[in-house]
Simulated scan of single mutants.
Amino acid sequence: MSASTAPTARRQRLGTELRKLRERAGITATEAAKLIGGNQARISNIEAGRYGVSAERVRTLSCHYDCSDHELVNALAAMTGDRRRGWWEEYRKTLSRGLLDLAELEHHGTALRTSHTAGLPGLLQTADHAREVFRQVVPALPPPEIEHRLSFRIKRQSIVFREDPLPYHAVIHEAALHMEFGGSTMAGQQLAHLLTMSEREHITIQVVPFKAGGYPGAGQPIYYVHGPAPQLDTVQLDQAHGIVLLDAEAQLHKYRQVLARLESLALGAAESRDLVHNIAKNL
């Protein structure tokens, strides 16, 4: 069992889920420690993500906690196995922890869903479009920092280009398609890129047209990362102060409903492509 001065989001999530199982079983940390021949501090450190834990111990704890959800137990055990440093670690000293956590979540996810109203999903942006977005950050970023963030975003996009790409479902409001970041030429290139991406088998792009009227979520971008078990899903929200990650059961249920509602309001994939094509023609 190894200590970690900077626990990753994955290790912290493992600890959180073990704590939920323990509390649901009505077992205290001190009692759990006795079950595995340890002390309360060890259980607390595991649950906080400060200590790693073996797959065998995860299964032992789950058994003591009377967890009969084999899909969840297997998924938790699998979270202990990959100790290799991810590509995002090279950015740890230069970018926010929230961005690194997001890349790690994507890497270990099983499917991605997102909705956007006034902007386009980062994984579907061209490099020129993304660079222009970073130029709008307040306070303004120096050019080297813009390029640094751009390189990180481009590397994140590999999740939809790799040999085993994740299923990706994006709902975009029509308003976002009319935003001419960098001028009409760049906007046209971005829309053409969306059309190209929409033809990929694992990518679904739906557009919510203006005529759809009201919609839930108040226009807030939502990013939903599916885990190997439903309890391990994560919602990412962008806030003025940075990235927020949510994983409480009630929160996951709420955003699953919001996304389902948005998807039902949106045009089908073929109709959405037609709308994007028409907007591009009129730039």
Rank of each mutant, 00 (worst) to 15 (best):
G242A: 05
T204E: 13
T28Q: 00
P167Q: 00
I205D: 06
P7I: 05
R10P: 00
R19I: 00
P142E: 06
T80F: 04
Y223D: 11
R200N: 09
H148S: 06
E47I: 04
L252P: 07
K34T: 02
S115A: 08
D66W: 08
S96R: 13
R84H: 10
Y255N: 07
G268H: 08
E104M: 02
S44A: 15
R19V: 06
P165E: 02
D82L: 03
L95I: 10
H129P: 00
E47Y: 09
L76G: 00
R149F: 03
P167N: 01
I279A: 06
G109Q: 01
E31G: 00
P142K: 02
L99T: 04
H70R: 15
L112Q: 09
I203Q: 01
S4Q: 12
H193M: 11
N45K: 15
H108T: 10
D128E: 15
I159N: 10
H129L: 06
T185Q: 14
S198F: 03
T117D: 08
L265A: 05
R11E: 07
Q236M: 14
S158E: 13
R42T: 10
T16H: 14
R261P: 02
L252K: 13
H202P: 12
A118Q: 14
Q125S: 04
V207A: 06
Y65V: 04
R85A: 15
H108A: 12
T185L: 08
L18C: 07
A6C: 05
G122M: 02
R11M: 11
D274K: 14
E201L: 05
F210V: 04
R13F: 02
A140N: 15
E174L: 02
V235W: 03
H178A: 11
A3P: 00
H169K: 12
T126W: 07
L237D: 04
S151N: 11
R162E: 11
I27V: 15
N278E: 14
Y215T: 12
A212Y: 12
F181N: 14
A187Y: 11
M1L: 08
L102D: 03
A103E: 00
M197P: 09
E104N: 02
V207R: 05
G122I: 01
L124E: 07
R83V: 09
A55R: 03
A140M: 07
T94H: 11
P167Y: 01
T30H: 08
L246Q: 10
C67Q: 09
G182P: 04
D128P: 14
L21D: 12
R135Y: 03
T185W: 06
M179A: 14
P216V: 06
L105I: 00
L123Q: 07
A218E: 14
